[in-house]
């Protein structure tokens, strides 16, 4: 009983926080609303006794959102907190896609004849996860490794294109007069 109530509450929190992402006018709030949504999902995973996956979801998502906030605030073409904004691009298309995906998933959840449970879960799911990673799912590890390395290198090459031989100047070069005084502005551009 308590678990059901808790599950419903968490589900509502997850959905409500997800909606809040698109309703708020602040990049900071949008980011952390998303984080709250993920935390609720993580807590739901805990209810399925997926201890490791649940806790690690919370861990990773809060961390990623904290980092994402940096980028969201930096790269949006306008003030990230004090201007009305819309988080929606291509409203019709995204509505269509979102609705479609929801219908497919919901239909799947309701229509697929789920098999009855065979056997019992392992006493410690984290251990079986570790055994799977190190054992028969080793290929995952082996692919992830070079993938992460490539990510690391390419991300840095993109973010820090000057490399070691040309350190960043402390300040931008003095501006030519052609651009004129900076007007206060929102030059647009996506986020």
């Amino acid at each position: 009983m308590l678990t059901t109530v808790l599950f419903i509450v968490l589900a509502l929190v997850a959905v409500a926080a997800g909606i809040a992402v698109f309703r708020t006018d602040s990049m900071a709030r949008a980011t952390y609303a998303l984080a709250a949504s993920f935390v609720a999902v993580g807590a739901m995973l805990l209810q399925f006794n997926l201890d490791y996956i649940g806790v690690v979801t919370i861990l990773m998502m809060v961390m990623e959102m904290a980092i994402m906030a940096i980028f969201m605030i930096m790269f949006m073409g306008m003030n990230p907190a004090l201007m009305p904004m819309s988080m929606v691009h291509n409203k019709r298309g995204s509505l269509l896609i979102a609705g479609g995906v929801f219908l497919v998933l919901a239909a799947g959840a309701l229509l697929v004849p789920w098999p009855a449970r065979r056997g019992a879960p392992a006493p410690d799911l984290t251990v079986s996860l570790g055994e799977a990673i190190m054992g028969n799912k080793m290929l995952v590890m082996l692919t992830v490794s070079p993938l992460l390395f490539a990510t690391l290198v390419s991300a840095l090459v993109l973010a820090n294109p000057r490399g070691r031989y040309r350190p960043y100047p402390k300040l931008p070069a003095p501006k030519q007069s052609e651009s004129g005084p900076e007007h206060h502005g929102h030059t647009g551009g996506g986020h």
């Binding site: 201890d51 806790v55 690690v56 919370i58 861990l59 809060v62 961390m63 799911l125 984290t126």
Partner: peptide, 13 residues
């Protein structure tokens, strides 16, 4: 918790 250590980590994050 069977993953107490990860819980600690999650809280510090």
């Amino acid at each position: 918790l069977p993953v107490g250590l990860v819980w600690f980590n999650a809280m510090d994050v």
